[in-house]
Simulated scan of single mutants.
Amino acid sequence: MKTEIMFVWGRQDTHVPYAGRQMICARLEEVDARYEWHEVNAQHAFLRDEGPRYDAVLFLRSVMLTLDFYRRAMSGRSHPQHGVS
């Protein structure tokens, strides 16, 4: 059984740089994974509500993406095979 997975990345995240994200995306494509992919202009830990990298607007946007993802998954509605934003 294949399931869908969602990723939310900070483009300026040095812990998972662009090359690393490209490797992950390439592997997902190789195995024909169902996934949703989002990259935002942020650093590592932008969702953590402490410290200088926290971004409240991106946090709320990411929460909405996650809730939409869960609603769709729980309703049984399928998402397009690959989603990038």
Rank of each mutant, 00 (worst) to 15 (best):
P80Q: 10
D55Q: 04
D13Q: 15
Q81W: 02
R48K: 12
R11A: 13
G51P: 05
N41L: 09
F7I: 14
A26M: 10
Q12M: 12
P17N: 12
R77S: 09
T14P: 09
H79M: 13
A45F: 03
R34C: 13
I24H: 08
P17K: 03
R71Y: 04
A45N: 01
H38K: 15
Q12T: 12
T14A: 11
G76Q: 05
P17A: 09
A33S: 14
S78V: 05
G20R: 11
G76K: 05
H38S: 15
D49L: 04
R21D: 02
A19L: 07
A42F: 07
A19D: 13
N41K: 15
L65A: 04
S78F: 00
M1Y: 02
P80I: 10
K2G: 10
D68I: 00
Y70G: 09
E39A: 06
L58E: 13
F7S: 09
L67N: 02
A33D: 08
D55P: 00
R11M: 12
F7C: 12
M23K: 04
Y18W: 07
F46T: 00
L47V: 04
L47E: 08
I5G: 08
E4V: 02
L28T: 07
I24L: 15
I5V: 09
Y35H: 09
I24E: 05
Y54Q: 05
M74N: 02
S75G: 12
L47Y: 05
V31M: 11
R21C: 02
R34T: 13
T66M: 10
Y35S: 02
I24Y: 05
I24C: 13
V40G: 03
Y35F: 15
